[in-house]
């Protein structure tokens, strides 16, 4: 464990908690893409099946359970509890265009052709594009609530910190996982446009960002 990975995990946890609290406190999921949240729940489910097969550390197990719990709680709030506030007309990204190619790629490019490893690879590839429905929805509505932009900032920051963690681990441990690194680079690049808006609009204090 290094400071970049720890900060990255905490940033990821912060994003997940920010979103869950935002929906819970405002009792509304307006502006939130339910499709992205379903994809994230799928990412955690397929990646953390090893909870059943191997124990790495208390930290690892605890965080995985928290991530899975929060992901499903968020999906529940969006599609059940606060269903009336779900903005389905703007959450129209065709997720099958993400899941099918990612599923195929996981079969073609992986470390080991075993079920757990294929699912892990699927989850890594899926996570890199899972935010697209949310970014697409924001571009369609033309605005995002401030709290949603903080959620996206921490979510984008987490994988950027992981990139530094992988540089650190390659240099100090000789460890590197090409699949995770390539997917992580793609994932972080997808946030660049948003990061730019977040920083520039954030300074001007406007309470909404308007992606081009």
């Amino acid at each position: 464990m290094n400071i970049f990975r720890l900060t990255g995990d905490l940033s990821h946890l912060a994003a997940i908690i920010i979103l869950l609290l935002k929906i819970w406190k405002t009792r509304s999921c307006a502006g939130i893409s339910g499709k992205s949240q379903v994809l994230f729940a799928l990412v955690f489910t397929t990646r953390y099946l090893d909870l059943l097969t191997s124990f790495i550390s208390l930290y690892n197990t605890t965080m995985k359970i928290i991530y899975i719990g929060c992901a499903y709680a968020t999906v529940y709030l969006i599609y059940m509890k606060f269903k009336a506030t779900y903005d389905g007309n703007h959450d129209t990204f065709r997720v099958e265009f993400l899941v099918v190619p990612v599923g195929g790629l996981a079969f073609l490019v992986n470390h080991d052709f075993s079920p757990l490893e294929i699912l892990w690879t699927f989850s890594i590839y899926l996570e890199s594009v899972a935010i697209l429905p949310q970014l697409f929805m924001i571009s369609k509505t033309g605005e995002a609530e401030t709290i949603t932009t903080h959620y996206l900032f921490f979510l984008g920051l987490y994988r950027a910190l992981y990139l530094i963690n992988w540089i650190w681990r390659f240099y100090f441990e000789g460890f590197f996982d090409m699949i995770a690194i390539v997917a992580g680079v793609v994932q972080t690049i997808l946030y660049c446009d948003f990061f730019y808006l977040y920083v520039t609009k954030g300074e001007s204090g406007s309470n909404k960002i308007n992606p081009a």
Binding site: S54, Y67, H111, L116, E117, D177
Partner: peptide
Amino acid sequence: EYDIYKHDEL
């Protein structure tokens, strides 16, 4: 091979 290749990251 999979056992050797443990994914220790979240």
